[in-house]
Each structure stands twice: as structure tokens, then as C-alpha cells.
């Protein structure tokens, strides 16, 4: 039986520090973990979601049978955790999709925008998953500062953040690899459904995205 064509799309930050769980090391680790799986391609989706859609529409990227998008959770509720979802699609009012496109065309890279815009333009296969790292909003800044100030050892970072960024990346790789290889067969109680009405609304860039915080 032919293997399904699988794409892993990293909506990450390919040009940042290695210690950032969604940084360049994630791609290298995923490629290494999947080196014996030629039917799985690991793609950098750190682009405007409109560009991601255009790559599929123009045939630059082959439409896969299964896709796993990996990126940052839109809202931080439990920093240091990783969650997986099966995308069940659904509709958002066009005005809400427009808000995501406005962000997309002006430089915002965002997992949920990619998910919704891709869904609107119908580029996702029915087997579409997301694997999301929950990182506090200031994680990147802290990691950059730690690196600049020479205190970026795993132990020190774990103390500073309350979790080890390396471990987050390992969890991401494990979860993404499992979903890429097994798809719906791997779906269990830890992979919950996600639909359009569950996406975080687009908010002012100035608002901190922390769940349950006052005014958040």
C-alpha cells in the first residue's frame, strides 16, 4: 500500500536563537527524526500565510494527504506544555478572516492565521493537525538576553523559564513525528479537535496574549 504524502509545516522562527523551541533546530531535529520516511517532507512555513497558500495554489508545493503544522500556541495558558489538535475546519465570518489576511500580508507569521487562511482558501487536506508549544509571551526575549549575556545553559534556562526549552522541542518532535507517520491512527485523547470557532481572535498587537489575564 502506498504511503500517504505528508507535509510538516513549521510555522516557527527560522532565523532566531537555537535555544528557542521553535527556532532553526526544530527543523533540523525533525528532518533527522524522519530521515527514513521519504514520504514525509518538512517545510518551512515561516512565511506570510498568504504566501503559504499561494505556494500550494501555484503547485510549488504538492498538496499532501496529511499535514501537520507546528508552531506557537496563540494563547499562553500553561507555559512549557505541548498540545496537539486535529483541525476540523469550520467557518469564521469573512470580516474575521480579513483581519487575519491583513496581518498576513503585513509580515505577521502566526499558526492560527495560517490555519484559518489555508482553510478559507481550501488548501488543507482532511487530515490536518497542529502541534502547538505553549510559551509565555516573553520567552523569546528572555532567551535572546540569556544568550547575549552568556547564561544560556539548559540548566540556567530551565530555572529562568520554569521549564526546559530543549524538552519542549523534544516533545514537539515526538508529537509531530507520531502524527506525521500515523495520522488519524495516532489520534487519541491527547489529540483534541480544533475548529474555527475555537481560534483566538485577532487582537491588538499591544495586547499580551495570556489566558485569563486581566484585559488579555
Amino acid at each position: 500500500m502506498a504511503q500517504p504524502r505528508v507535509t510538516i509545516g513549521i510555522v516557527g522562527y527560522s532565523a532566531v536563537v537555537d535555544s528557542y523551541p521553535l527556532g532553526p533546530k526544530l527543523m533540523r531535529d525533525l528532518e533527522a527524526a524522519l530521515q527514513d520516511a521519504p514520504h514525509v517532507s518538512v517545510e518551512n512555513f515561516t512565511w506570510s500565510p498568504v504566501h503559504v497558500v499561494q505556494r500550494f495554489q501555484d503547485g510549488e508545493l504538492e498538496r499532501p494527504d496529511r499535514i501537520v503544522l507546528v508552531g506557537l500556541a496563540a494563547e499562553s495558558a500553561a507555559p512549557g506544555t505541548v498540545a496537539a489538535y486535529r483541525w476540523r475546519g469550520g467557518h469564521q465570518p469573512e470580516a474575521k478572516v480579513q483581519e487575519r489576511v491583513y496581518e498576513a500580508v503585513t509580515g505577521i507569521v502566526d499558526l492560527e492565521n495560517t490555519l484559518m487562511i489555508g482553510s478559507y482558501f481550501d488548501v488543507w487536506p482532511s487530515e490536518c493537525f497542529t502541534v502547538e508549544a505553549d510559551l509565555a509571551p516573553d520567552t523569546f526575549g528572555r532567551l535572546v538576553m540569556a544568550e547575549n549575556e552568556g547564561r544560556a545553559s539548559p540548566e540556567k534556562l530551565e530555572i529562568e523559564l520554569g521549564y526546559a526549552p530543549d524538552k519542549i522541542r523534544e516533545k514537539l518532535v515526538a508529537q509531530v513525528t507520531t502524527l506525521a507517520m500515523k495520522g488519524v491512527d495516532a489520534q487519541n485523547s491527547t489529540v483534541t479537535d480544533k475548529t474555527a470557532d475555537m481560534l483566538c481572535p485577532v487582537r491588538s498587537f499591544a495586547e499580551t496574549h495570556v489566558a485569563n489575564a486581566a484585559g488579555g
Binding site: P137, D138, G141, M145, S204, A206, T208
Partner: peptide, 8 residues
């Protein structure tokens, strides 16, 4: 430091 500023 990279931080987001909560303003509205």
C-alpha cells in the same frame, strides 16, 4: 528586553 506592552 523583548516584551509586549499591554496598552489599550
Amino acid at each position: 528586553v523583548t516584551r509586549e506592552v499591554t496598552t489599550c
